[in-house]
Simulated scan of single mutants.
Amino acid sequence: MEIRSDDGARVRIRPVGYQPGIDPPDDPDGATPGWHDWLLIEVDARTPDGQTWSHHYPSLMVEEARALGGWLHGQASAALGPDSPPATVRFTEPNLALRTRVIRRRRLELTVEFSAESLPPWMRRPVTAVYPLVLTVSADHLAVAAEQWAAHCEAYPPRIQSRFPAEGPLPYRRRAG
């Protein structure tokens, strides 16, 4: 998806694959949920004054990526009303976070917060560093970006499905003999 601001700033974010090289844990039943579902996220950003940077990092789990599309669409819909409260979405990996604030009807401020490996290369990198890229966009533009994001995510279903069919585990059967 691409989101362009009125002042020339922009951000392009898209999933480009599953995180390679993730070995299964010794005990998959005791593993942290989502260990197998990290997506590589490609980000290309430009500030209002024309500075650019990009990175490619496993920043979102599949479930988080899919939820982001819904969140963006919800924020676009909320901007249709005059009194929507600010909202923030954060993820397991702290590289990206997004905040919105309605500035007037059908217009909102979307702040994409970059941290850790996602920081622009010109920034110092203390653990707590955050670079906020502020984008002023229309609700319609954000709704289009949400649809683009959802379409990107369709290509990345969870890699490991449940061990059981949708109706639950199979009943235990005693073997004859």
Rank of each mutant, 00 (worst) to 15 (best):
R159A: 11
E63M: 05
H56S: 11
S118T: 08
C153L: 03
V11W: 01
G8S: 04
G34C: 04
E42F: 09
P28F: 13
A65E: 00
R12P: 01
P121Q: 04
P86Q: 06
P33M: 06
R101H: 12
V144R: 13
T88C: 10
M123S: 10
M1Y: 08
V144W: 07
R104A: 12
L60M: 13
P157F: 03
R101E: 15
D44L: 10
E42I: 00
Q51M: 14
P120I: 09
S84G: 14
I22H: 07
H141A: 15
L142G: 00
R125M: 07
V127S: 11
P24T: 00
V130K: 04
R163N: 07
P158M: 05
D6H: 14
A151T: 14
T88I: 14
P25T: 13
G30Y: 04
T88L: 11
L98G: 02
L40I: 11
P58N: 09
P25E: 11
S54H: 15
D37V: 02
V62Q: 08
A45C: 06
D26F: 05
V89C: 03
R66A: 10
P15V: 05
P94G: 07
T100C: 06
P48G: 08
T92Y: 12
T92P: 00
Q75R: 14
L135W: 09
R101K: 15
Y18F: 15
D83G: 07
P85C: 02
R107L: 14
P58H: 10
R10K: 12
H73A: 13
P121K: 04
R163H: 07
S84N: 09
E64H: 07
R107N: 11
T136I: 14
Y18R: 00
R12C: 10
F164N: 04
E147N: 14
H55E: 08
Q75M: 13
G17T: 08
L133M: 01
Y131W: 11
P48C: 09
R46Y: 00
E167Q: 13
L72F: 06
Y57S: 03
Q75E: 15
R174H: 13
H152P: 04
F164Q: 02
G168H: 11
G17P: 03
Y18G: 01
P82N: 08
H141E: 14
H55C: 12
S138D: 14
P132N: 01
T92M: 09
Y18D: 03
R99T: 10
Q161K: 10
R125H: 10
L135T: 05
L96Q: 02
C153N: 02
P165H: 07
A139K: 05
Q51Y: 11
I3F: 05
R105I: 14
R104D: 14
F164G: 00
A65L: 00
D6V: 15
V127W: 13
A139P: 04
P82G: 05
V43W: 02
I41M: 12
L80N: 12
L110V: 15
P165Q: 04
L170P: 09
G177I: 08
I22A: 11
D37Y: 03
R124L: 13
Y156Q: 03
L39N: 00
R163C: 04
S54D: 15
P169C: 06
L96K: 02
T111D: 04
Q19E: 15
T32S: 10
R46E: 15
Y156N: 03
